[in-house]
Design a protein around this nucleic acid. Structure first.
Lengths: 160, 160
DNA sequence: GGACGGCTACTCGGATATCGCTTGTCCGAGTAAATGCGG
DNA sequence: CCGCATTTACTCGGACAAGCGATATCCGAGTAGCCGTCC
C-alpha cells in the first residue's frame, strides 16, 4: 500500500500558500521552484486541489493559486482525498460469493463482508486522525521546529 | 491510495484454514478453487504469509498450508504487513530540504518533517485498529452473519 | 508374507512475462496587463 | 494629457507519452506415498 508522492507536494504547497498569505496568488512555476519539483506535474496536483475547492485559481499574468479557505478550515483529509480520490484503500471484491459461495442463496450476503467491515474500521480511524489535523496545526508544528520559516519563505519568494 | 487485492485473498484464505482446522494442510489449488482465484498468483501470496510466519508449508503430496498460530494470535495487521510490506503508506521525500531549504543549515532539519509526523499519526491509528482485530474476531463476526459457514466449508472441502 | 528400492505424482518455491496506473510532459484556450495610438 | 483598442506575454487547464510496480503465469526442486520386486 503506497500513497502517491503528489500528496506530499500538495500539502507542502498549501503550507507555502499559508505562509505567504493570500495577498496575491502564487503561480505553479513559483511553487515548483520552491521545492525543485516538475512544474507541469505539480500543476496537475494543484488542479486537483482547485477542483476540490481547496484552492482558487486565477488565470492570466500575475495569476496563480490561493487558499480557498483559512488554514484552520482545511484538514489533511481534505488534501489527501483531493489528490488520492475518495475511495477507501481496501476494495472488497466479494470473493466470498464465488466458488464455495456461488451455490448458497443471496440472502446470506445481505450483511456486508466481515473482512471488509474490519478493514473499514481501520480506514475510518485513519481518516478520523487526518480529519482532526488542520493545515494550521501542521504549520504551527513546523513553525515550532523552525521558527523563522515564514520569514524565509517571504524572502525567498520576493527574491526568486 | 490503493491496497493490493492480494490482501483480500490472504485474509479469506486464512479464514478458510481457520474454519477447516489444522488437522491436515490445504493445498494452493484447493484454496484457489474455494474462491475461483488464479492458483499460481494466490500461491505467491501464501508464500508471503509463510515467510512472515503466519502459515507453515508442507511440501509433497497431501501437502499444503496450515495456520502457524491460533487464529486468536494472528492479527489483521500481521496479514496486511505480510502482503503489502512493512513500509508506511506515506513516504517522506524530504522535499522541504530542496529548493528554498537548500541553503539553510542542516541542523534545522534535525526534527522530522511536520507533514510526515502528521501522516504517521494517521498511519499509527490505522495500524492500531488492524492490530486490535484478530482472525478469530473476524471469523466470529462472519459466523454470526452466516452461522453454518464452517459446516459449508467442511462439506465443500470434502466433496471438492 | 514382509521389507526394501525405485518410481510416480503432487506440492511448494522462485524466476519469468504482461498489464494498468502513477508519473511525467506537452501544447492550446483564456485573460490581465502593458503599449501604442487617437482624440 | 487622457481614454481606448490592440498586442503581448503569462497563466491555468486538459490532452498526450513513458516507467514502474502490481498482476498473472510457468517451470524446476523436493518429498511423501505407492508399486513392484526381492528375500
Amino acid at each position: 500500500m503506497r500513497m502517491g508522492e503528489g500528496v506530499e507536494w500538495a500539502v507542502h504547497s498549501c503550507l507555502v500558500l499559508a505562509w505567504l498569505g493570500d495577498a496575491e496568488p502564487v503561480s505553479t512555476g513559483r511553487l515548483a521552484a520552491t521545492f525543485e519539483l516538475p512544474p507541469a506535474y505539480l500543476n496537475k496536483q494543484l488542479q486537483a486541489l482547485s477542483k476540490s475547492g481547496i484552492l482558487t485559481s486565477t488565470p492570466g499574468p500575475r495569476g496563480g493559486f490561493r487558499l480557498a479557505r483559512a488554514p484552520e478550515d482545511i484538514s489533511l483529509l481534505d488534501v489527501v482525498t483531493a489528490i488520492e480520490g475518495p475511495d477507501e484503500a481496501f476494495r472488497c471484491q466479494e470473493i466470498r460469493q464465488r466458488g464455495v459461495g456461488a451455490g448458497v442463496p443471496k440472502r446470506q450476503f445481505r450483511e456486508q463482508c466481515a473482512v471488509a467491515a474490519a478493514m473499514r474500521q481501520a480506514d475510518v480511524a485513519w481518516r478520523r486522525t487526518l480529519a482532526q489535523q488542520s493545515l494550521a496545526d501542521v504549520k504551527l508544528s513546523a513553525d515550532r521546529a523552525a521558527p523563522h520559516t515564514a520569514e524565509l519563505m517571504r524572502e525567498w519568494h520576493a527574491g526568486g
